[in-house]
């Protein structure tokens, strides 16, 4: 059982990372499900969420608030509200006017929006990476240590917080999509936008709210990453965005449980690959597994097979 502690540690790290990817991936998958476009700016919305959370943390420090749950709650609320405003604005400016045009026009406009957001943040917040002091330190020591100097398995408190928040949010989210009127409207728009609008669903509003929800979840992910890794820069959204998009496709784009599953899988693949093979090629591994899965299941793990209509 020598391998087990090391394996367990990677499992914990992978799950933490995967939760973050999963939260971002939901934004991609929801938007894709409802209007069939890849929102390339979503990674940058996540980056903005991380920045807002970081600034809130600094303000808390300046105001002398030191009770950790209060700080967490403030960061969560502020970052979610402010980032949701960005999600709404991006949709309103760059995507809504293009609804109903060719499939590629919103894609290009999304790429433009991504370039715009990155450079905007670089201008207003400066190009340097921002180191953030960890708020929650320490953790449980699950195994190892002691006299025989064996491998120490750490389960950080922050990791627990991340996984817990993700589970709570996912549960709440699944309930919301399944049971509320907004969720029903979203599913109606997903199936047939024109018919939904004929039946009195405000399609524009539903789509806007989808973007707002996606941005809110991305903001939570951004906040957790700020606290966990504590190194924000204006370019952090690009790689995370691509990973999350990969996760969404891996799980089957358009499927919410698929996005979460895909996110966790990508997180695990990365953690294990970096631990056992090479950290440099972890992205290659993630993409290769995506290709492999898609060869055998062209619509992802949990995606519904597309019915071709002529």
């Amino acid at each position: 059982m020598d391998w087990f502690p090391y394996f367990l540690q990677q499992l914990i790290n992978g799950l933490t990372l995967g939760s973050v990817y999963g939260l971002i991936a939901i934004g991609y998958t929801m938007v894709y499900g409802i209007i069939g476009m890849v929102n390339f700016a979503h990674g940058d919305v996540y980056m903005i969420g991380a920045f807002q959370a970081m600034i809130m943390l600094l303000i808390c420090g300046a105001l002398g608030i030191s009770w950790v749950p209060a700080i967490l709650l403030l960061m969560l609320i502020v970052s979610v509200v402010l980032t949701a405003a960005y999600g709404w604005t991006v949709e309103r400016i760059a995507y809504r006017p293009l609804r109903g045009s060719s499939r590629l026009a919103p894609l290009i406009s999304a790429i433009g929006m991504s370039v715009l957001l990155e450079n905007y943040v670089q201008l207003v917040q400066g190009p340097r990476p921002k180191p953030v002091e960890p708020l929650i330190r320490g953790g449980f020591q699950l195994m190892g240590g002691g006299a025989d100097n064996s491998f120490v398995v750490q389960l950080g408190y922050m990791q627990i917080v991340i996984v817990m928040i993700t589970i709570i949010l996912m549960g709440a989210f699944a309930m919301a999509i399944g049971n509320t009127s907004l969720g029903r409207q979203q599913r109606a728009c997903e199936q047939d936008m024109k018919m939904a609008s004929l039946l009195g669903v405000n399609v524009d509003r539903t789509i806007s709210l989808t973007f707002v929800l996606g941005a809110a979840l991305a903001a939570v992910a951004g906040m957790m990453v700020t606290l966990y890794y504590g190194n924000n820069d204006f370019f952090m959204g690009f790689v995370a965005g691509i990973k999350a998009f990969t996760a969404a496709v891996l799980g089957g784009i358009g499927s919410l449980p698929g996005a979460m599953l895909g996110g966790i899988l990508i997180g695990l693949i990365e953690a294990f690959w970096s631990a056992y093979f090479s950290a440099e090629y972890k992205d290659v591994a993630a993409f290769s597994i995506l290709v492999l899965v898609l060869i055998f299941r062209p619509t992802g793990l949990l995606g519904r097979p597309e019915v071709e209509k002529v």
Binding site: A94, G112, M113, S114, L116, L117, E118, N119
Partner: peptide, 8 residues
């Protein structure tokens, strides 16, 4: 920044 704006 302008480049992104122009693209959109």
């Amino acid at each position: 920044l302008f480049y992104g704006m122009c693209m959109v």
